[in-house]
Design a protein around this nucleic acid. Structure first.
Lengths: 208, 208, 208, 208
DNA sequence: GATGAATGAGCGTTCATTCAT
DNA sequence: AATGAATGAACGCTCATTCAT
């Protein structure tokens, strides 16, 4: 969405491969994504993909990275909408993350659910960039600590645990493992509310 | 009386298949687990597995069920250790769940991370039994609500969100996706503490 | 039907195997008939079949033979109903053969459509017995020649060609290869009528 | 222009696959024809076949079509040799059909003996083209009816029954089910003669 | 820059059959 | 008389990848 479609219809085959792979990922799932299917879908030979990507893993790494950058953009936007209030901002970030996951289920799978030992090593440079996503949470948290709304021992740790809650929420929803009698919306709202409440400064101990 | 349980001989191979499958699962993951690999690992022909399981899915269902029952036993035990205090009990349950996940990564993936649409339907009877695990959380929560420690809108929903937090925690740890600079123990403690704190009755509104 | 059900419910396993195999043959087709399916259907182990039959081929030979004997009985009956008129008798035999084929399609396949080189040698003794079926046609033909209704060069040859016509008729019907716009009944009637007409003495040459 | 028909290289293997499959068909029969066997016979990997055919059924459809077209050509030629006399033409067509069957047993089974429910649907376009074979018989028959040599109720039906006779004749011969004491040539001649005689106008009823 | 040809490894599963008991 | 355990071979098919052009 940021730097993708440069227009030259036939020229940027690399771009088309990525876009097609992304679409197939959503339609068919990670397991059923194959080089040939991608190639067929764009009308090129499977061999051609190897001109632009060393391997299937390399292609996936690129897709993961693009997903991370897309998520980053959306998180940034959500953060920017609430520059003043860290609680509101954190809530917006949480909501944004969950929505991203539910709207891009297969993206989500390769981004957060693939076991790294089952793939070639994710390139460190990309890894570093993806870390900004967590930093956005950490920043909101930090400001909340500063203005004494939140009380946590270690910002980095708590940012991670908040993220873990969201990740669990998305994962269970995507895997269809939440009790059918529970409305997804209610589930998400409650998860986010509790995650944030868990960070709040506990009141002056009225009666320990 | 004639051919059912003569003790060792019969169940032996079946047991070895299950154990081997379980071990391979953690090395190779669900996607790359194959009947042949299991067979090779135990030195039998692939055909032999079909003497004990109708299909790959049936084998996995058995594994899932075993994991669920093992988790249930451990959760029960944890709950039984704190019959009085629901908060302590809930904390023990949380800890127990996380420990189970980290100690049984081979079970964890198939128990909680598999997308159901990629497998045959899990047998309803087994499904029902597995539900007790969540119920143990819900019970602790309910008692906490009754004695006014916790304040939640809907017990079933909040039990699920607590579970989601734990699930996210375990998933990220297993997938090696937590910042290396964070001690796993710290991460887990924080996650559990915040999850429980998120349930607590907010103090008498001193300042809305 | 002649000497099959002797009553002793459990005793005659051999009989049950044959009956079950026959039923499965009709339901599943020759290709999908397997020893295990037979065994499962009667609740015995697959191994047990080998107590009564040396091999799958041997079992099939027995089935073929039974089919032949069943067909023979029906043909005999048809022949006996028209002891006087050879034309009527031949027509009845033809009709009987076609009906047998259509009513026992999978029987028909193993009886008349299996290429012998793809099976163990059919036992000569059984082969000889099966020949009576053709003889019934030959007899009717012979009498028709004697009373000057039919005119053929060699009775054995013409009996075979009549049979070939019927076989072709049944085969095409079973393989669903007759134009859908043609009524099967019409097709059969015409086939039989023409087969018989083809045997008839051509009239004294009025003007050749 | 670039990669379609450069003459030999491309179609070469495809041709060899078809020929090999054809030959194996007669040795092994449809049931036992496998992609691997074809591949082994030509010294290629089984995978390679899939470069030229989408599936086993697609390969067989191609073979069937080739057989049909070859038969059509031969039937056309036979018909063209007797433009005047419908009886002679029909006789030539019959002889041609039988000869085709005996000379191409590998084609014959898949063309006329396969149960369609055991294969993917034969492509309608090819089906339509194959229909011309029967039409050539029907045309001869029709002209024979017009010049009052033949007398039949329905041309389409009688063309089918003639065909059925020939089919039965070929099938029995190929399956080695004709009495060994009968000369194949005699058998064929008789079959054809009787089939045609069966169509002839019966004489003015001298004595019903 | 792009391809066509080709492959080895692998998949879940079914099969007829053997053998010791 | 009957079985349970076990197997080697085979099935159609898909996969990521290589290589010469």
């Amino acid at each position: 969405m940021s730097a993708s479609s440069n227009g030259s219809e036939n020229g940027d085959l690399r771009r088309r491969i990525l876009d097609t792979a992304r679409h197939l990922l959503v339609q068919e799932g990670y397991q059923d994504l194959s080089m040939r299917k991608i190639a067929d879908a764009i009308g090129y030979s499977a061999t051609s993909i190897y001109l632009y990507f060393d391997s299937k893993d390399a292609l996936l790494h690129t897709l993961i990275h693009e997903g991370m950058m897309q998520l980053r953009d959306q998180l940034r936007e959500a953060a920017a909408a609430h520059p003043e209030d860290p609680v509101c901002r954190l809530r917006a970030l949480c909501r944004c993350f969950v929505e991203f996951g539910l709207e891009n289920p297969e993206y989500y799978e390769i981004m957060f659910q693939l076991r790294p030992e089952r793939m070639e090593r994710y390139p460190p440079e990309k890894y570093r960039q993806a870390r900004e996503n967590l930093d956005l949470f950490a920043n909101a948290l930090e400001e909340g600590v500063e203005d004494e709304t939140f009380a946590v021992d270690d910002i980095r740790v708590s940012a991670s645990t908040v993220w873990a809650s969201l990740h669990g929420t998305v994962s269970l929803l995507l895997a269809d493992r939440v009790d059918v009698r529970i409305e997804p919306e209610t589930f998400i709202d409650t998860a986010i509310r509790q995650a944030i409440r868990g960070l709040r400064r506990t009141p002056a101990p009225s009666a320990p």
